[in-house]
Structures are given as C-alpha cells and as structure tokens.
C-alpha cells in the first residue's frame, strides 16, 4: 500500500515542502479567520468611536457585547424558542420530504400527480403565506412551524428524489436477476445511493429552516408565539434599543453557524468511508 516498510523515511524536497505546507495550512485554517474577525471588530469599534456615530445608527461592538451579557435572561429563552422552531421544522421537513420522495420513486402516478404541487409550495414566497396561516391556524407556534417547514421541505424532497433515482442501472439489473423485492431494492440500493444527495439537501434545508423561522417570527411572532430571536430583534428596533438588536442578530447568526456545522458533521460522518465528497486525497 505504501513504501514505508522499505525503512527509508527520507523525504525529498517536494515531500518536505508538502509536509510543511500542510502544517501551515492546518494552523492557518483557524488563525486566519480569527484574525479577520478580530480586525473587523477593531475596525468597527474605531469607526464608531472616532466618528462619534450615534448608537441608534450603529452601536459599537462594546455596547453590543454588553447587551448580550445584560440581556442574557431575555435573549437565551428567545434563542431556545427559535432553535426549537427551527429544529422541529427541519425534523418535519426531513420526515415529510423523505417519505414523499420515497412515495414518488415507488409510484410514478404519485409523482406525476403531486410533484407540481410541491413545486408550487416551494415557489410561493413564504412571506406571502404567513399572514394567511395566522388566520387559519389557531396556534401561532404551529403557524410559524408550518412556515419554516414549507421552506425547508423542498430541498430535501427534491434532492432525495434525485438521489433515489441515481442508482447504477447495472446494479438495478443485478437486483432484478437476483430476484430482489421492492423493499430490498429500496433498502439496499436506492437508499444508499440517495444518501449523499439527501445530506446535501439537509445542509441547505438547515439554513432554510432558520430563515423560515425568522420570517415567521417577523410576520406572526408579535401575535404571541412566545418571543423568539427574530421577534426580539424586531421589538428592539421599535424601542431604538440597537444594542439588543445587534445582539439578537449575532445570536441568530451563531444559530445558523451551529446548524450548518452540525449538518456538515453528520454528512461527513456518514460519507467519510466511501463517498468522493468526504474523502481526503492521499497524494
């Protein structure tokens, strides 16, 4: 497999260079973004203090940081509410999207009948539907959940449907020759083939679920969903509390990063053994 048993560990110039570059890259991957972050915060701070920018136009990083600490008792429950909304919507999008994708691939009739409506659901802007949902659905939380679900659902459905159909044709023939049942074909062939597609959809849907949740809170939130981060943000803007507004914005951002990191990790763990996207090339 490799030449290490020849007991000549000498690295030639090129290999030495490559090893050094890898070491540097590993460190730079973390230090460079951190440095950029620190510098932007500094620039932000200097811009605000040197120009005497009023706090209701742009608060500096210090008051924003202070606001995160001081308003923590208010922001933390709001973050939990938004997280719960997002994660629940994502969960429902995954179950619904995968179930419908399976139904579509199992029955051509089902796909012909319902796929256009899935598209309509997708292309209709959620902002336009949200007020209606508020009228027809009693619980504001359920209405917000529906909003976030509608946005997150389509990438899962679309990617999983494509994935389920992407299995190798020769493998399909092989399954036919060996007399595989429908279930075996789905379980052993279509589902694993669909996995990379599904996980790609999941990463997109994670971000979209958060966007859907934020939009829903903007539109419906005031009606008493229990305050999430987006409704806190909106309320802070009405009160000209710009420190809190930015604090809420930053927390939404962190939530988004967290969701992306988790879905990426899931994707990496499930694919690292075999799929090209998760492999690191040795040479």
């Amino acid at each position: 497999m490799n030449l290490s048993d020849d007991a000549v560990p000498a690295l030639d110039k090129e290999e030495e260079f490559r090893a050094r570059r890898n070491r540097i890259n590993r460190i730079a991957k973390w230090t460079l973004p951190s440095l950029v972050m620190a510098l932007s915060l500094l620039a932000w701070h200097l811009y605000v203090t040197l120009n005497d920018v009023p706090h209701y136009v742009l608060p500096g990083p210090v008051p924003v940081g202070k606001s995160i600490v001081e308003d923590w008792a208010l922001l933390w429950p709001a973050m939990l509410t938004t997280s719960r909304l997002t994660i629940l919507a994502l969960f429902l999008a995954v179950t619904g999207g995968v179930a419908l994708a399976v139904a579509f691939t199992q029955s051509r009739w089902a796909e012909m009948s319902f796929f256009p409506y899935a598209v309509i659901l997708q292309v209709t802007p959620v902002v336009a539907i949200a007020p209606l949902l508020q009228i027809y659905v009693d619980s504001a939380f359920v209405a917000a959940l529906l909003c976030a679900w509608i946005v997150a659902f389509f990438p899962i459905l679309s990617n999983t449907t494509t994935g389920l159909k992407s299995a190798d044709h020769n493998l399909h023939d092989l399954f036919t020759i060996y007399g595989a049942t429908r279930w075996q074909r789905l379980r052993y062939l279509a589902a694993p083939s669909a996995l990379p597609y599904f996980l790609g959809g999941l990463r997109i849907a994670g971000g979209l679920a958060l966007i859907g949740a934020v939009v829903a809170e903007f539109v419906i939130g005031r009606a008493g969903t229990g305050l999430g981060l987006a409704s806190t943000l909106l309320e802070a803007s009405y009160r000209f509390n710009f420190g809190r507004l930015y604090a809420a914005l930053i927390l939404i951002s962190i939530l988004g990063i967290g969701i992306f990191a988790i879905t990426s990790l899931i994707s990496h763990l499930m694919l690292r053994k075999w799929h090209e996207s998760a492999l690191t090339r040795e040479i």
Binding site: D168, N170, L171, D173, L174, F175, I177, Y178, G179, A180, Q184, Y188, L189, P192, L195, K273, W274, H275
Partner: peptide, 28 residues
Amino acid sequence: DLGIVFQEPTLMPWMTVSQNVWLPYRLR
C-alpha cells in the same frame, strides 16, 4: 443459478469487498 459480470465492475461503493460479494445471498 445465474451470475453476471458487466462491462464495469458495478460494485456498491458504500460496501466493503466482502459485503459486495455477499449481495446475491443477502437478497435471498
């Protein structure tokens, strides 16, 4: 009673070599 080999190896990339060979039995 019938085995087939295609132009391409047509293996399942998510399975190990022995799991791939297991397939005809697994489907039974």
